[in-house]
Design a protein around this nucleic acid. Structure first.
Lengths: 350, 350
DNA sequence: CTGAAAGCGCTTACAG
DNA sequence: CTGAAAGCGCTTACAG
């Protein structure tokens, strides 16, 4: 109350305003606000009261400059689709990351990019963060380029869903055990009498997809079955996956099973099988990967693998913050388990 | 080449290092980099060469402090689900926003929150941005509280999918014409012989959902039909929606049509109808809302309304940047059109 | 065409 | 227990 002490709008309240109003030095205000130094309770309370009354909010920019710490993590998502958050696997990772960061007073800067943007130098030079997290895609050359550019930022880097540890030292990779997931899918199918299979894969090379395929392939190989045939599903959109599978089915010969690289492709495959009159799972068995809510929508309910997407993002945040505190990554390769989840798109064991 | 001029790692290269190395003042370096002032081409080229050689990157923090501009927009998403990016309608908006911001050299800070977090003061006081964009949910009291807190940041605010313009002056709302979408759905059903209908709504009050319902209700009223009955789908998850619809159908009487507040609820309704032996669209007609890719997955393909989610996010970014430049919002209420999209879950006109 | 100086708003040794 | 001074790395009038 009393006469207005707040400076005219336009100029923000600074620590000096608070100090003057409270009759102390700026330093005391800083100490009270940051709980440092020894200040008498009486002075501290008075300062807090003035802070409240003037509506003082410390300038984050000044603090950042002074301490050369940003309390900010950058997240780069490299995907072909300009709608870079349309994939539930990605959004779950982003959510896990953001939630953990927020709980630890860090902010998240988000940016999407296409693999083909590689070679466009300086694309994230304007991101000033204490660390970076990235979800990469594209071929090896492109991914290597992104890792190099990110390393040039000279901040710790965590790569999500990357299976190959880069040479760069201040860098860690976190993935889920896609190989094991694929292997479980493969074994499940083998046990159900499958003798031949196709694998639905996107055109762009995703390390996770490859690991799933390698896992499934290893189970097939163990059973002495012929190699999986790869069906190229382009950008892995529903339409393209559907058309690709349909064309392959019509050309024949029809396999005993189709392994979707993810749920979406598996659902497209179910629809393509229906369109050609094939009954699922009686005549052909189908599996997906990820087990996001979508997997329930389809009839029959999909046999799939539950991904640890949210946990991946959370873990990335955790490891990055630990790295920032310790000065180095304790562990540079982390693999999270996945959870096989049988549904009705595969048969009972034979 | 030559002797190493780059300072030891740990200390970053500053503008002073560049100036010293190039034999000019820091000011000249700044001018060259920002294309301001008059500098001879020879000097400018020399400076650029040194910048390149030392790998100099200007400190964003220092620049921000000096110019008191952040080149950053904050995005707040208030939803019940801790997995705050699991809704495609939201992610499409975030993507549209991010893409536009990135193209205009702005960064995006992302944060999720629950409606029940309202009253937890200071939750985004640490976000220092030039402007804020928010997607709000919860009841009126909660939404008002968020708007007040956001306004306390004293930066321009854009509310997405908000239908009611708040009192706060430096604030704009952008929504799509959900009322019109609902109305088109309603008319479509009326033309197809529907005499009674249910509306599937989440428990939490979304302004967009309410507008859709009001639109559909107005079409029913125009045709002299009885009021829509609301079926509460809780958190609008698939399971809850399915169970709620199933229970309502079993209790009866069964309506001619079910209008889903979004596609997901509509798909749950289709499954619930199937479970009770009702044929869609012969015995009961069903519509959705949003038309994200998911809408194709279901059999029959959903009659729905294509949302302008990506355009909404893009527009929010555009208006915010324009506001930052002009000093005020040119238009405080913007409504984007939606696109009705007939499918096979409704009949031919009678 | 180029430079010395001041200042953005903080925090951190260092004194008292 | 409290304060004056220096400095984080930039940019902007203002001189020359």
């Amino acid at each position: 109350m009393g006469k207005p002490t707040k400076p005219a709008t336009g100029r923000a309240v600074t620590i000096k305003d608070v100090a003057r109003e409270a009759g102390v030095s700026a330093m005391s205000v800083s100490n009270v606000l940051n709980g440092r130094g020894r200040i008498s309770e009486a002075t501290a309370n008075h300062i807090r009261e003035v802070v409240e009354r003037l509506g003082y909010r410390p300038s984050v920019a000044a603090r950042r400059l002074r301490l050369s710490q940003q309390w900010t993590i950058g997240m780069l998502i490299v995907v072909e689709d300009p709608d870079f958050l349309s994939d539930l696997f990605i959004t779950a990772q982003v959510t896990g990351l953001t939630n953990y960061l927020t709980a630890n007073s860090y902010s998240l800067i988000l940016r999407g990019m296409k693999p083909s943007d590689f070679r466009t130098t300086g694309l994230f030079q304007d991101i000033e963060a204490d660390g970076m997290v990235a979800i990469l895609s594209g071929d090896r050359v492109q991914r290597d380029w992104f890792v190099r550019e990110l390393s040039a930022l000279r901040v710790p880097l965590v790569l999500l869903q990357e299976h190959h540890l880069p040479d760069q030292p201040d860098c860690a990779i976190i993935s889920q055990d896609d190989f094991d997931g694929g292997r479980q899918v493969g074994r499940h199918l083998v046990e159900r009498g499958v003798r031949s299979g196709w694998m639905l894969m996107p055109h762009v090379e995703w390390p996770a997809m490859r690991a799933r395929m390698d896992g499934a392939a290893s189970a097939f190989a163990d059973a002495g079955l012929p190699e999986l045939r790869i069906v190229d599903c382009g950008d892995e959109s529903f339409d393209v996956s559907y058309q690709a599978t349909l064309a392959a089915l019509e050309a024949g010969p029809v396999p005993d099973a189709i392994i979707g690289g993810n749920d979406q492709m598996a659902i497209a495959a179910i629809k393509a099988c229906r369109a050609t009159g094939l009954r699922v799972p009686e005549e052909i068995q189908i599996t997906g990967f990820n087990a996001f809510e979508i997997w329930r929508y389809v009839d029959p309910i999909l046999t799939t693998v539950r991904s640890a997407a949210h946990a991946l993002g959370e873990r990335a945040a955790k490891e990055l913050i630990a790295r920032l505190q310790a000065g180095h990554f304790k562990k540079r390769e982390i693999v999270l388990p996945v959870d096989f989840q049988p549904g009705k798109s595969t048969r009972m064991p034979s």
